[in-house]
Design a protein around this nucleic acid. Sequence first.
RNA 1: GGCCCCGUCGUCUAGUGGCCUAGGACACCGCCCUCUCAAGGCGGCGGCGGCGGUUCGAAUCCGCUCGGGGCUACCA
Length: 544
Amino acid sequence: MLTRSEIDALFRPDLPEPEHWERTYPPRDLPAGALVTRFAPSPTGFMHIGGIYVAMIARDVARRSGGSYFVRVEDTDQARGVEGAMEQFDRAFEYFSIQPTEGEGTGAYGPYRQSQRADLYLTFVRHLLRQGQAYLCFATREELAEMAARQQAAKVPTGYYGRWATWRDAPAEQVRAALAEDRPYVVRFRSPGRPGVRMRYVDQIRGPIEADENRNDVVILKASDQALPLPTYHFAHVVDDHLMRVNLVIRADEWISSVPVHHQLSAALGFEPFSYAHIAPLLKQEGGSKRKLSKRKDPEASVDYYIEAGYPVEAVLYYLRGLANGRLAELPLAEALTAPIRIEECGVSGALIDLPKLDHISADVIVGLSGDEILTEVTRWASTYDPELVELIDAERDLARRALAIEREGVDNPRKDLKKWSEFRRIYGYFFTRLAPTPVLEGPLASIDPAVVRGMMGEFAASYQHLDDPQEWFNQIRELAARHGFAGSQKEFKANPGRYHGSIREPSQIIRIALTGSTRSPDLFQVARALGREETVRRVSLLA
RNA sequence: GGCCCCGUCGUCUAGUGGCCUAGGACACCGCCCUCUCAAGGCGGCGGCGGCGGUUCGAAUCCGCUCGGGGCUACCA
């Protein structure tokens, strides 16, 4: 083993001692039971919806308990960092209103970016080195790869342990020689793990979990030949979560198998063991099986998907909260959004993202909004994703209000036709004068004698009365239809198919197409009232 | 290969030995309403991965097995 001075010579002379950091970041003064949680994304790409999911849970339990929640950026992998990722995170958190309660400028436990915390890690790396709980390893990547290949061939566990850990007990002379040659090295943890010995801990969601002790001499500090030597995730997690006084580590369940490593590292540093809550991942159906949502393959894995589609924030949050804690999925929106997520009630198995379900929830959320509120939200969304729509709404705002009032205001069960803001144009666009449809008769309607259609629509346009009683208004169509050879009802038509061109249904549909461009629309009378007399006549005249 | 996690209708779940002939929600199908669509109302389809055991009795407990996922990096 290297002498203390040889070890210290590897570090900056003024690198603080562990006690310095312990004093700088004292235990938090919080009421009993208050939880300190964090979300630790790495800036390697766009924000994953699973990140929002975990962050939402972590924030909720912390706030609920009177504790604190912060975001710590895990940017220790210099090679994979993506420019602008941080900003995208902030935007996503703000959009879903899950901003940290503590952070740069407002928190006393920063910096909140690992690349700015290098000295902290170095202090504790040196500490372990001095105590012989860590050592320098000069193995090259090639040597390591070859070793792994041999281990696989021999069907023994892969890793740096036992007789494979060649630098673990290398003579000091050999280490000095390597150092003298300026060979790059990493610092490895000297694992105290014994073969066949088990460790156990209690996960806050899953209960007792048992596993083999870690025997791997994991890397804790990466390549010495980098400009800024940084720790691996495992080491950073232990140092950071201890010093930032996190008392409940909430993270995705892919970390479960690393707990034995974290446990050893934490013990070696003399820290209190962490309490963990491992969250089941969000999955995606593929063929007959499920797999993790993939950033590359699944558009719905990105938060941008939800933002661009224009799902109301409340709908996404409600859905996610329900997935996290089933109890909340049974609650009405308002309660579900404010009821606490109970960590012990979180599911243990991964859930498939069910977009139709989100749509349903979203429609429920939107149906609770007034027309003006919808216009506000649509405009907000469209200002980024459909600027022309903003102009259309601004130009004919009253018309938009009337359109949205149809079957929505003053009725028992309001119309649930909008699921997301991006659908507004398709569903309500035809109201706007500039988007007025060109009527085309298709399908069964196309087989009606064009002369009959023209005659009927001509008469309708000429004699149209903009009545305000729904029944009287519709009677115009009934009488018109009868005069032009259509039965007054489906029944009547079916009784004597030969006597009619069709039933009241066809003339209604023709007018519907004239007014809306589609065979599917809200109540005709109300559409006509919203459009106004002039526009109604103008549109019908196109078929005359 | 080794270790770990998970496994109730298509999906999310309720269920902790008898209240389970397994409940609810979404999706799907049908009917009602009706000038179309949406909504709504009513009804339907559909599940304890499998096998053994414990027990008077098991979705619930035990064992094995199968399936899915994760880790096994100087990625997090």
